[in-house]
Design a protein around this nucleic acid. Structure first.
Lengths: 106, 106
DNA sequence: TTGACATGCAACTAAATTGTTGCATATAAT
DNA sequence: ATTATATGCAACAATTTAGTTGCATGTCAA
């Protein structure tokens, strides 16, 4: 779970996921064309995405095809976001009450 | 959106959110009791959570009460996770096909 | 008012992150 | 075979991050 959140923490990596979302199965070279940094920098980001299991790689000859894997994203939702979302209304209500109590003390 | 992902990237900060989820409205001192690091370190993490709008603060005398704000979490789901989840099945299908094509080349 | 308690601010250190460049290796095309 | 293409590996530098410690400030309680 930590690798997953860390992978998503970087804007460049989220951009790479966006690129794969638009056109899945791109090679490293293709992805680099859309980025401003060096190829090696992009490689490093992709490795992090692979280790977080957000991207799956298929070698085809000398080309490395990158596929978006949406499963871990789903896990974030179900295992972590879900629990906060479930009580979203309740928590907001609690917060609202706390704020009202506080302003009544002034 | 970047501040939000960066805030969630750290395990300690996710732990703090979990603590507030269990018992909302805790003071800095109360939160520190559950953590191993120094009070100042916890403060820094809380500031980052506040700047990401994940935690809202209410001052009560000399005590600082911390409330979990689940709204930004909901935004992650709707603005970013949603788009991948929506096509989750499709993307998995594409990935599966790619893997099958590849193994047929061997 | 004095002492204890809750928190803030700032300087410093260590480690992780993000990028670079140079060179190596493997595959494809002429 | 030779050359061009696609990618990998490793060393380095700059920045950010996560933690520490020491001291200051503001509030409650005796």
């Amino acid at each position: 779970m930590d690798k997953l959140f860390k992978a998503l923490a970087d804007g460049t990596r989220r951009e790479l996921l966006d690129l794969l979302f638009v056109h899945n199965g791109q090679t490293l070279g293709e992805l680099c064309k859309h980025m401003t940094m060096s190829r090696q920098a992009v490689t490093k980001h992709l490795v992090i995405l692979e280790e977080a299991d957000l991207v799956t790689v298929v070698w085809q000859g000398r080309e490395k095809l990158h596929y978006l894997n949406p499963v871990p994203i789903g896990e974030i939702y179900h295992r972590w976001i879900g629990k906060f979302e479930r009580r979203r209304i309740d928590a907001l209500q609690t917060l609202k009450q706390a704020l009202e109590e506080d302003s009544s003390h002034e």
